[in-house]
Amino acid sequence: PTPPYLKWAESLHSLLDDQDGIHLFRTFLKQEECADLLDFWFACSGFRKQEANEGNEKMLKLAKAIYKKYILDNNGIVSRQIKPATKSFIRDCVMKLHIDPAMFDQAQTEIQTMMEENTYPLFLKSDIYLEYT
């Protein structure tokens, strides 16, 4: 069978589908001071996943927490990578208490594209990955 670390090189999704892959990628991102990109990506997935069985109040609190931690500060690594229109949309959802399971989808896509084009290829060339393999 193909060793997991070779699968990690197939696509970002293959990497993020494996706990050890996530751990190594996060260690790399931490070195580059952009681990928030990955945390935000998982927070968006988790938000969408939890919607069905969580109460509205809890979802609002969670949406606010994600917004405050990653989007509100315009100098944050995540906020800098998200388009202004996408940020306004999320801010409006939070302010108007309009909580939708898909409200972070566009922002997640933008961060994912950025990782696919930038940090993920760098990771595959990094010492941390090459040493692991």
């Binding site: 706990q19 998982f42 927070a43 968006c44 988790g46 969670l62 927490a65 405050k68 931690k69």
Partner: peptide
Amino acid sequence: MDSEDDLLIKCITSAMPQHKK
């Protein structure tokens, strides 16, 4: 009641794949 940070950590963890071992 969970703090916002606790909620966030739980949310991130819930989206990660579980160990297959």
